[in-house]
């Protein structure tokens, strides 16, 4: 006998969020195993900045990845009814979380989105506007900035693949010659 698929499917959808991201995928971030006896130094600060790795409304838990590369650490926090800005704790999105210690638990008090800073002169484009531009066959070059493997799996219509390291290395040779050409860059969501 199996769990009734329909019922649990709804629960699944709530907990589920596309696990694509601009930074390394979760499956590629092995964390070091620490011996249980090792004491973790107390954190003097009460603010964590990083990417939300997960949120469970049922368990009232948030996980945030702090630090980059090999130093990346996943930290678990709790939240409650008085936690402000819970809507910004979305898996895969960058956030700043203020917390207080309650016993051994970190309890989030305020969550704010960590907004991507756009380079000067670059305007954001939203999904609706981009869809409209596709519909009107606007003259644009859509560029996927994610690693080539993510592009291969699935990319926007007509997009070309230029991962960040490639653009750094090959500069304008991989971009259209015309400097007036409209370029739209995207990746797997905010970092």
């Amino acid at each position: 006998m199996r769990i009734h698929p329909k019922k649990i499917f709804l629960l699944g959808v709530l907990a589920l969020f596309a696990f694509t991201g601009c930074t390394t995928q979760k499956s590629q971030v092995p964390t070091a195993v620490k011996p249980a006896t090792e004491k973790v130094a107390p954190q003097p600060k009460d603010i964590l900045k990083g990417k939300i790795a997960g949120k469970s409304n049922k368990a009232k838990n948030i996980q945030i990845i702090v630090g980059k590369g090999d130093k990346a650490k996943t930290i678990m926090l709790k939240f409650n009814d008085s936690t402000k800005g819970l809507e910004f704790a979305k898996k895969g999105e960058a956030a700043i979380i203020k917390f207080k210690m309650v016993g051994n638990d970190k309890v989030a008090t305020v969550i704010k989105p960590k907004l991507a800073k756009l380079p000067e002169g670059v305007l954001e484009i939203k999904t609706n506007e981009l869809m409209g531009m596709y519909e009107s066959s606007a003259d644009m070059v859509v560029i996927d900035a994610r690693p080539a493997s993510r592009y291969a799996q699935g990319h926007l219509p007509g997009a070309i693949s230029i991962p960040v390291p490639k653009l750094k290395k090959e500069q304008e040779t991989v971009l259209p010659a015309n400097r007036e050409q409209l370029l739209v860059f995207y990746c797997g969501g905010p970092t």
């Binding site: 991507a116 380079p119 002169g121 670059v122 653009l167 500069q171 971009l175 400097r179 370029l183 739209v184």
Partner: peptide
């Protein structure tokens, strides 16, 4: 990437921050 393109002299650069998801 948008910043790099801007530095390379591209005038019309947009960033689709919401991205593929």
């Amino acid at each position: 990437n948008a910043g790099l393109a801007k530095k390379l002299g591209y005038k019309n650069v947009r960033a689709y921050l919401e991205g593929e998801p």
